[in-house]
Each structure stands twice: as C-alpha cells, then as structure tokens.
Computed example of a mutant assay.
Amino acid sequence: MIQRFIELGEGYGDFYELLELATSNKNRIYRFIQIETTINKQKRVSLAVVLHPAAQGGFMPIYFCREGISIKSGQSSKRITQFSELATQLQQDIRQLEVRPSVDFPDPELYKQYLIGILRVNHCLPPLNW
C-alpha cells in the first residue's frame, strides 16, 4: 500500500475543496486529522482527510491543507468548526496531534515523510502491510 499526502493549499478555496472531497468520498473516509504546530510563536493548524485505498492499486491518499489556519490564543476558527461539523455529520472522530512545523525541514517531502511516521505511530494510519 502507498500512503501519500496530496497538498491542496492554504486558502479558503482549498479548504472548501477538502470538505467537498470528504463529502463526495464519505464511503471511503478512514480518518479526519487536525495537526497543530507553532511557527514564529503563532499557532498554526493543518487539516487532513485520509481515505481508504481505492479498490485497485492500493493507494491511500491523505488530502490536507498545510498550516493554513492561524489560531490566536483563546480563540477558535470558523474553518475548524466547519471541519468538526462535517466530521460529526459523517460520524467520524477528529484525531488531534501536535508536531514540528514544516519550516524545520529543508524539503517539503521530508516533512511529509515525517508526518506519515507520526501518523503511523499514533495509529492515524494503518501499517503498510495492512
């Protein structure tokens, strides 16, 4: 099985595309994930939807919007609320993790490999021999 991130972007349009991907693939949803980090003393959130592998090919996509939501202390975000509402509607829990920021890595692919390792260790992704 191949597990790979598909990055959508950081904007509102990208976020709404993530919601649409989850809605249109509701029968394939494996997990909703909220990944938190801190960049320059600012809390940032990435949102991800993991789908079960397609019937053919064994490809498990992880669609995500990387560090596109900034959170001020004591406040919430409308996008996080919408993500949570969709997860509830689709009868999914949201796994929350705190990780190192992508700026700590010289290459975006190294960051994605790091995240896959973190997600596997925290049972947010199945092992490769699943």
Rank of each mutant, 00 (worst) to 15 (best):
M1D: 07
M1R: 07
I2G: 01
Q3E: 05
Q3I: 02
R4D: 13
F5R: 04
E7W: 03
E7N: 13
E7G: 06
L8W: 02
L8K: 03
G9C: 08
G11C: 01
Y12K: 12
F15R: 02
F15M: 08
E17A: 11
L18Q: 02
L19E: 10
L21K: 13
L21A: 09
L21H: 03
A22P: 12
T23P: 00
S24A: 05
N25Y: 07
N25L: 00
N27Y: 00
N27C: 01
N27M: 11
R28D: 13
I29H: 07
Y30F: 15
Y30T: 01
R31F: 04
I33M: 12
Q34H: 03
E36L: 10
E36F: 01
T38S: 09
T38Q: 14
T38D: 08
N40H: 13
N40G: 01
Q42I: 08
Q42G: 04
K43A: 15
R44Y: 02
R44D: 00
V45T: 15
V45I: 15
V45C: 12
S46W: 10
A48W: 07
L51K: 01
P53A: 07
A54Q: 08
A54L: 04
A55T: 04
A55G: 04
A55P: 10
A55E: 07
G57M: 09
G58A: 04
G58I: 08
M60H: 03
P61F: 03
Y63P: 07
Y63T: 02
Y63R: 09
F64W: 15
R66L: 12
E67Q: 15
I69F: 04
I69L: 10
S70F: 14
S70I: 15
I71E: 09
K72L: 15
K72G: 06
S73F: 01
S73G: 06
S73E: 14
Q75M: 09
S76K: 09
S76E: 04
K78I: 13
K78S: 12
R79T: 13
I80K: 10
Q82P: 03
Q82F: 06
S84Y: 05
E85D: 04
E85L: 14
E85V: 11
L86S: 06
L86H: 07
A87F: 06
T88I: 07
Q91G: 00
Q91T: 12
D93F: 04
D93Y: 03
D93R: 11
Q96A: 13
Q96M: 14
Q96H: 12
L97C: 09
L97R: 10
V99E: 11
R100T: 06
R100Q: 15
S102K: 07
V103Y: 11
F105R: 05
P106R: 12
P106C: 00
P108F: 07
P108G: 05
E109Y: 04
E109S: 13
L110T: 03
Y111A: 02
K112N: 09
K112F: 02
Q113D: 12
Y114V: 09
L115H: 06
L115F: 05
L115Q: 14
I116R: 07
I116H: 05
I116K: 10
I116W: 02
G117H: 04
I118F: 01
L119M: 15
L119P: 10
R120T: 15
H123K: 11
C124N: 11
C124T: 10
L125C: 05
L125W: 12
P126S: 06
P127E: 13
P127S: 13
W130Q: 14
